[in-house]
Amino acid sequence: MSALLEVNGVSVSFDGFQAINNLSLSIGAEELRAVIGPNGAGKTTMMDIITGKTRPDEGEVLWGDRNLSLIGLNEARIALEGIGRKFQKPTVFEAQSVRENFTLALSKPRDWWHVLRFRATPDDVAKIEELAEEVGLTAELDRPAGELSHGQKQWLEIGMLLAQDPQLLLVDEPAAGMTVEEREHTTEILKRAAHTRAVIVVEHDMDFVRRLDCRVTVLHEGSVLAEGSLDHVTNDPQVIDVYLGRSDADS
C-alpha cells in the first residue's frame, strides 16, 4: 500500500544555515509516528514544510493517493487537503464554551454566507458529543474554555482539529506542561486517533514517547539519523552521542 505522505530529498537553508538536509521519510495512512531529536534538528522546520509555511529549496512532498505535490501550496489549501497541525501552545476561543469551540471547528463551508446562516443540525450535535467523549471533555461541554486546565485546553484543541476530519494530524510537544495523569490521557487520545488517520507527534519527553509505543524517527542536523522502535533508536550509539547524552536536548 502506498504511503499517505512522502517526503523525498527535501532540503532548505536559512541565511546559510542548513535547517533540513536531504530529508526523506514516509508516513502510512493509519500510523502513529513519534519524531524526536536535539534542539536544531529540524523538527519544526519539517512540519513547516509539510504544512506549507516554509517552501524547501529542493526535494518533493507528495500527498495521498493522487501523489499531490504540496510544494507551492499555501497553508489553507494544505489544510483543506486534510492535514491538521497543533502547535505546542493551545489556541482555543477562551470566552466561548467547549461546545461552541467544537461547533466552530466543524468541517463546514467557511464563506461569510454559510457562517451567517449556520445552525447546528442533529448530526452536528451528535458529532460534537462524540468529539467531547473522544478527548474526555463531555463533562465540560458548557464550561468556558478559558476555565479549563492546560491539559484540557490541549485536548480541546486536538478535538477541534479532529472535528475537521484530517487524514494527517501533526502534534507539537503535546505533553509539555501536563501532569502525569494528563499525559496518560493524551497518550490514549493520540493512539485512538491513529486508528483512523496518520498522527505525527514531535516530542522530547522519552517517557511520553514510550507510552505511545510506535515507530520513532530521530532527526539530527536536518536528516534522519535513526528510525525504528524506541528501544532500537535509544540503543543506537549515534543517537546516544548527539541526543540522549546531551543535557540540553529539547525541542
Rank of each mutant, 00 (worst) to 15 (best):
E129G: 08
S251M: 07
H204S: 09
Q238W: 01
L170P: 10
L148P: 12
L73E: 00
D207N: 13
I78E: 05
K86H: 06
D213N: 12
G72M: 02
K153F: 04
E133G: 12
F17A: 15
Q238V: 14
T187I: 03
T121V: 00
A139E: 09
V10N: 07
A105D: 12
E100M: 07
V224S: 09
E227I: 09
D231K: 08
A76L: 06
S26D: 11
G9D: 08
T103A: 14
I49W: 00
A105I: 12
L219F: 03
V202P: 06
P122I: 09
H204Q: 09
T138Y: 04
V7F: 04
Q88P: 10
V7I: 07
I240Q: 15
T51E: 03
D15T: 14
E188T: 07
P144R: 00
L137A: 02
R210C: 12
C214G: 07
Q88F: 02
G72K: 00
R192M: 02
V135P: 02
G222V: 08
D15A: 15
A105M: 13
E133R: 12
N235Y: 00
E140I: 00
D123V: 11
E184Q: 13
T121M: 01
A95T: 15
R211Q: 15
L116A: 15
I128W: 08
K43C: 11
W113N: 15
H150W: 10
R119N: 09
G159V: 03
E130G: 09
L230P: 12
L212M: 03
A139Q: 05
V199Q: 07
S26I: 05
F208T: 13
E221V: 10
T91D: 13
L168Q: 10
S69A: 06
L80M: 10
Q18I: 11
Q152Y: 01
K43Y: 02
R85M: 08
A3I: 00
A132Y: 01
V239C: 07
R197I: 11
H220K: 08
R33S: 03
I158E: 01
H185K: 09
S149G: 14
M160N: 03
E221K: 05
D124P: 06
R192C: 04
T91C: 09
T179F: 08
E75V: 13
V35C: 01
V171M: 07
R110E: 10
L131W: 07
R99T: 11
T91F: 02
M160E: 06
S24E: 05
E30N: 13
K127F: 01
I189Y: 01
R215P: 07
D231M: 08
L25G: 11
A226T: 04
E181Q: 13
S251Q: 01
A226N: 05
S149Q: 10
I27Y: 02
L190W: 00
N101Y: 02
T196D: 10
I50W: 00
L104R: 15
A95K: 14
V239Y: 00
G151H: 03
Q167P: 10
D65T: 12
E81I: 03
E188C: 03
Q152I: 00
A249H: 13
G64A: 09
R197E: 08
H150R: 04
M47K: 06
E6Q: 12
T103C: 12
E6Y: 04
D123F: 03
R246N: 15
G16V: 03
E181I: 03
D123R: 09
F102E: 11
L131R: 10
W63G: 07
H220M: 11
A76D: 14
I50T: 01
S247Y: 14
S2K: 02
Q152D: 09
D15E: 15
R183V: 11
R119I: 10
